[in-house]
Amino acid sequence: MIKTIKKYWFLFWKFRSLRAMKLLEYRANFWFWVTVSVMWTFFNFFFFDLIVGARGNIAGWNRNEMYILLATFTMLDAFTWSFFYHNMQEYISSIFDGTMTLTLTRPISPQFLISVQANSYTNVPRFFIGLAMLLITIHRMQLQVSLLSALGFIAFCGISLLFVYSAWFIVSTFSFWVDRLENINELVPSTRRIWQVPKEVYTGFVSTLFTVVLPFALVASLPSEILLGKAMMHWLVFYAIFTFGLFYASTVFFKISVKKYSGTAN
């Protein structure tokens, strides 16, 4: 067991170093995309600042609380773009062009290999902008963050990443069932708009859809609520159970779907 964990741990970091080497090969490209991602980050803060300016709050979240939410969103989003987007893109492409055979014949878990083989470093500065914004806002609000709420925040950021990963993996796995749908990888990143705002923004049917059926609205809201001390236990429990269930469903769905795969030997 320990030997297996060591092997996967080694592989995980080996992929990271390979990607870092690739980054050094295309340095100008790296800096260009860093600029683009930083620009989008400032755009988001500025855009919501303008909206909050209209009435002083969005769905009861004042400017500082919105900054906490946006900072959390920025960090989670930076992580999803760095990791999930590139891995899922390669996963989908390998299904459509038949190179999935290579992954399936390796002596390790295909889902692990699919999920960690790629990444990009262009969103790393964005993650730190989010973190800096979070710390500055906590300081400005003079928010008393206990060790428990800090740990809760980190734990639920992790759960949110697992939720986004599982949803993305399920959507990408649908590629086994369709002939050609190149932009299937854009579906989950487009839901970022949903979790960029507090869950209270949604009301009625839309609220049920985005907080219970497909709880994307909870991704950044719940960790932020933990920090702000207004998280409700029933939401946290529901979200954690839903996420682990979704992760389990993603692995089962992959095992079923992979049987549909057909590719020539590479």
């Binding site: 909206i51 209209a54 969005i58 579906l187 839901t191 949903i194 705002v197 839309v206």
Partner: peptide, 16 residues
């Protein structure tokens, strides 16, 4: 996806 964006934008403004 375009309509999803519009829906979220409308929800934000309705909340404002």
């Amino acid at each position: 996806l375009t309509l999803l964006n519009t829906t979220v934008l409308l929800a934000i403004w309705i909340s404002v």
